[in-house]
């Protein structure tokens, strides 16, 4: 029972990397499509919404999975404040992963724009728009998006720092 775990479980690693790819694509698609007047903007928007819904589902699976799993501890060599920062940034990342699809859905809901997931099914929206709530969730979606992008960058830099500078097993535990 006391055997030390040095690696995240396969399911956690797969979820981590799959969601990393999805979220980075979603962020770059989002930042592109709000500016673009090109013909493919509609397809990009459609994909963004469907992929956003997928992230919403995956983040729930991931949280349950994380809740049930035992994970490798951070190296003892790590100063206490860095451990706190690491923990805090992970909570922040999880929170933003939940808030992004939620605000995205709510801005569409109050803009009275049903979200069609290909021809498969359609998420409902309000019958009539509420322009103030639309504004609120639209602004939050953008703001949280940029915050998430910055956090991801910090997360990546921290992982690289662990691997190349500290040379501990933190990055390897996720590979």
């Amino acid at each position: 029972m006391n055997k030390k775990i040095t690696r995240f479980s396969a399911s956690m690693r797969i979820l981590h990397w799959a969601m990393a790819a999805l979220i980075i694509s979603l962020l770059s698609a989002g930042m592109t499509m709000v500016k673009s007047l090109e013909v493919w903007q509609l397809e990009l928007l459609t994909l963004h919404k469907a992929a956003g819904l997928l992230v919403a589902v995956l983040v729930v699976v991931r949280l349950v999975n994380r809740w049930c799993a035992t994970v490798p501890a951070l190296p003892d060599s790590l100063p206490r404040w860095q451990k706190t920062m690491a923990l805090g940034s992970h909570y922040a990342l999880y929170s933003l992963m939940i808030l992004m699809p939620l605000t995205g859905f709510l801005m569409q809901y109050y803009g009275a724009r049903p979200i069609a997931v290909f021809s498969w099914f359609t998420l409902p929206s309000a019958l009539y728009p509420d322009i103030e709530l639309y504004a609120l969730y639209r602004q939050l979606h953008g703001f949280i998006g940029y915050t998430l992008a910055v956090l991801i960058l910090v997360h990546v830099l921290a992982a690289l720092q662990h691997h190349f500078i500290r040379k501990d097993g933190v990055l390897k535990s996720m590979l």
């Binding site: 709000v34 090109e38 903007q41 509609l42 322009i131 639309y134």
Partner: peptide, 27 residues
């Protein structure tokens, strides 16, 4: 469904930007 008419496709993003600006002002 929408055709691939470039003007039609551009209307969505432009309208969204106009809508966002005035929505924030209303808020």
């Amino acid at each position: 469904e929408a055709t691939k008419d470039p003007i039609l496709r551009a209307r969505s993003a432009a309208y969204a930007e106009s809508y966002r600006r005035r929505a924030v002002e209303v808020l």
